[in-house]
Design a protein around this nucleic acid. Sequence first.
DNA 1: CAGTTTAATGTACACGCGTACATTATGGCA
DNA 2: TGCCATAATGTACGCGTGTACATTAAACTG
Lengths: 322, 322
Amino acid sequence: MSRVLNNVGPMKEETRKRVLQAAAQLGYVPNALAQQFARRKSGNIGVVLPFVPKVHLFSTYYFSEILSGIGETAKRCGYDLLLIFREPDGARDYAKLFRTQKIDACIVLGSQNVPEERAALAELKEGGFPFCLVNQRYDEEQYETVDADHFDGSKEAVRHLVEQGKRKVAFVNGPAQYSNSADRLLGYKAALSEASIPYEEQLVYVGNYSRKSGYELAGRMAEGIHAGCIDAVFAGNDRMAIGLIQGLRELELEAGQHYALVGYDDSDGSRIISPRLSTVAVPFYEMGRIAAARLLDSSSRNPSSDTNLDILPVSFINRETS
Amino acid sequence: MSRVLNNVGPMKEETRKRVLQAAAQLGYVPNALAQQFARRKSGNIGVVLPFVPKVHLFSTYYFSEILSGIGETAKRCGYDLLLIFREPDGARDYAKLFRTQKIDACIVLGSQNVPEERAALAELKEGGFPFCLVNQRYDEEQYETVDADHFDGSKEAVRHLVEQGKRKVAFVNGPAQYSNSADRLLGYKAALSEASIPYEEQLVYVGNYSRKSGYELAGRMAEGIHAGCIDAVFAGNDRMAIGLIQGLRELELEAGQHYALVGYDDSDGSRIISPRLSTVAVPFYEMGRIAAARLLDSSSRNPSSDTNLDILPVSFINRETS
DNA sequence: CAGTTTAATGTACACGCGTACATTATGGCA
DNA sequence: TGCCATAATGTACGCGTGTACATTAAACTG
């Protein structure tokens, strides 16, 4: 009987036990498909991941952490995780997943501010489908978002470099379609301004958050270091920082010696590279947990904080490269 | 009309078009829940992942690669990926996922040869539920399995060390509940035997595949190196090798200089650490692809190869530590 | 004890698709 | 034209739950 299982309506304790025992004896298990169909809920929360033909290209650390956080909350709320790899050809019909009832809610990871993505998200909002972005803001759109304070993290990182006496801090940023890239640039500028160091555009480099892109910037950066135009580097993530270390090492330039360096993410790699990389720790796991709770856990929806944007604090970690 | 959509039975081209157009005009989207219910297929393939309270503890590289491979095949076959985090308390009722129809097939990652796991897998087999193991064999049980040739990989790795003139090769193995640990031990022994080097039990150390466990073995190993009982180390995975490098470095012992070292997995870390780690590349992505194809892609089921065990080749990669 | 409320249980139907079967249109053939 | 085979379409029911509503049992009230 559906009622004892779902504990709906009043019932005699004895009946309840009788039904439960009969179910156990018959080896009854509810059919999830029929339940989902009758309830018109899939019980799934979709997690959109960037398309990754070569998985090496993206930070497995970053996604693993967030995914684990989402998983924890989902399990607690009785939901399952449906993995959705974004299409390579730019087709991102997130709304269809809702219309076909495959998912009840959705968390979008690695979202980029490009036209197709904006359209897809706008369609979700239009349709009233519950979704949440992680680590990407669209300030003009008021979407549910869980972000980290990359402005502050970057400011702290650069401030640290300045406090070490560095005055010529280069910045290796990521692509502009990520809001965290913009945040870091602002933090970088703020820290410089705070120290009355003029901002110089030619000290800002752009990679794509891959190790390779950091590696490939080493040549240009080496010139600056040799010329005395650069005495420190702040990289937008650890992977680029690590690429940079490796590229500059081939040019006889050592991090923490010929130049100071701070990365970002506190990834595994930052503890593996030597010298150990100073970096900024981001609570990715926590961000995943919160994003899922926002969507699933009504009890955690605090009516007083009716904001749709969470910005979690980050923390600078001083190691050997700065 | 269900028939035009599923292309079943004969129909006039004109009717077909008419129906399609009407559907488009009405904005019709099939309800996946109802489809699944009517077809009695969820269209989901479950992927069981180890429980990871602290995700740092397991190799994100390893799982990300396999997961991506599974995802590729699943998408190609029209299946979705349902993530299943194994319960922390040892409860692993995989069969229930089938009975409730949540999944149509299942891939078990990080499977360990322990009683609860064996029972859970036996129950799956008993129930006739399609599942596949990746990177873990149960030789006595004839389960569908995709593994890599860790015997050969280990033999190659140790052979390489021997060819460098090393005669006292220590081995840092992982826990015995993983078949690949046993495979590596066999490969290690085979390579020694090939070179007429007697096997010495005290040269075999055991960690748990974490970086920390490698780090913690450094003390004991340093004694052996100083005493001349060890001139090379073969580690069962890169993470332990990296931990070892870091631990031994603190004791003034450098990989590739005071001792030769070979890791295993060809993970990102092996390219990040310096000196760059010699290692063994494992086609994890491919293993995921094949495992999923085994379960989903009937066209790939080659009748001539009716074996239920795939063992993929691995390849030694020589870098700076050996 | 009848009347009234409330607890407990029985019952029937809807959910939206797939599909087996019934029915009707079409074409080939002599 | 009549007959049959086959193509094409119409139709009704089943899938296994959840749930609204009907029905019956119990409890309470004056």
